[in-house]
Design a protein around this nucleic acid. Structure first.
Lengths: 132, 132
DNA sequence: CAGAATCCCCTGCGATACTG
DNA sequence: CAGTATCGCAGGGGATTCTG
């Protein structure tokens, strides 16, 4: 990774978010992950149990859901509450920080969802142009 | 993927964003990708050439950058302009749709970046608790 | 300069089976 | 119910080389 010696000419916009060793990227791996984002949006609405999340999020495996939740918990976005009832019951909810985060994620996902058909049309056009 | 037959009791929040076959997810693969999000934020500022992006985004390989840009272009978020100068020059910029998208992505990334230190601290605490 | 193509490794992730 | 543990493979992605 050759990086120029003259620090003068180097301009890194928006802080150092784009530099390879910026720790923010490690967090983005959790937040922007396929399942992480969906979990955050769901929990924004209300708290859910493990099996509820597994049901609501189509296509997720227990392994990935578990992993996703644990990472979000470690980051401090998600709170995990165990109720020692019978059968056991575990509730997941957002911390205040996770709630703030979730709002940003939701606005992004909503936008994409709203414009999905247009984007799909763009994809079709591109494929057509390539073929024709 | 067994889905209950009674559509009555099923409540899928926020449209069907969480269902496995929702096309929105395909788009999210591009938008929420490690490099895609960084590209979008950079291009929000101004247009860039390929090599500039490759330089600014630390750690990205030419292959991944190329792939990322092509996907965002196909989706209609990024515009690619070739200037047949010598040496050749290719400029990447955002379409209006991409610009809207970029704003959402930026607000998310900014938030994460702003709270990065707190999250890292949370991680350390979690690791400590696990060890202790 | 701006990529495409090839090779190849590594790991993310699903499937399955088992525990508290 | 709410997970862990183990296995196995497809494919994501880096390094390198080649083109216009």
């Amino acid at each position: 990774m050759p990086w120029p010696k003259s620090t003068k000419a180097v301009r890194v916009p928006k802080a150092n978010l784009h530099s390879a060793n910026c720790p923010t990227r490690l967090i983005l791996d959790d937040v922007m992950s396929r399942w992480g984002s969906l979990v955050l949006v769901l929990l924004l609405e209300r708290s859910y149990r493990f099996s509820e999340l597994a049901y609501l999020i189509g296509g997720v495996s227990e392994k990935m859901l578990s992993q996703t939740l644990r990472r979000l918990e470690v980051d401090g976005f998600v709170r995990r509450e165990v109720h020692a009832t019978k059968p056991p019951k575990v509730e997941y909810s957002l911390t205040p920080l996770g709630c703030e985060l979730g709002k940003h994620v939701q606005s992004l996902l909503s936008f994409v969802h709203k414009n999905a058909s247009r984007v799909l049309k763009n994809r079709d056009n591109a494929k057509e142009r390539e073929a024709g």
